[in-house]
């Protein structure tokens, strides 16, 4: 978390698909909810986006993918994060991800998948709960 206690999140587009509407809408909603958002833009390799996650020292990585390459690319991202000592980062995902694939993604450490129709307020509150759950429970959340 940043010095001001704000949640830092990387919104990233792994793979080659240019469908960035969802990523940008979510990024903006997170920013409006008071988080510090770094958006990578499209066409990020697992290596590139892990590098940014480390440099920016983020608390959360949000992955948006609609091309169907998640089962190939997400393991590389999770491995990279672990290898670089960022294995404890909260990783969430969104896009076109069939329900049947979600258990496999959870197995590799993706905490939640927000598919089409998800509300941005659910995403915001999920992140807040994961990162500041105890504080919130005590009514001390400063976010």
């Amino acid at each position: 978390m940043s010095k001001e206690g704000r949640i830092r999140i990387l919104v990233a587009k792994p793979g080659l698909d240019g469908h960035d509407r969802g990523a940008k809408v979510v990024a903006r909603a997170l920013r409006d909810a008071g988080m510090e958002v770094i958006y990578t833009g499209i066409r990020q390799t697992p290596e590139m986006l892990t590098e940014v996650a480390i440099q920016e020292d983020v608390d959360v990585v949000g992955l948006s993918i609609l091309s169907g390459a998640h089962l190939e690319l997400f393991p590389l991202i999770m491995d990279n994060l672990r290898k670089k000592g960022k294995g404890d980062t909260l990783v969430i995902a969104g896009g076109i991800i069939p329900e049947d694939d979600i258990p496999a993604l959870q197995q590799m450490g993706v905490k939640a998948v927000f598919g089409p129709g998800s509300s941005t307020s659910d995403i915001v509150s999920f992140i807040q709960k994961e990162l500041t759950g105890t504080k919130e429970a005590e009514g001390k959340s400063g976010i």
Partner: peptide, 19 residues
């Protein structure tokens, strides 16, 4: 194909034949 990479390019990983 749409971005001009062959299927063996590093950036094509996971994307070949998908969309």
């Amino acid at each position: 194909t749409q971005i001009g990479y062959d299927s063996d390019h590093l950036l094509a990983r996971g994307e070949v034949g998908k969309v």
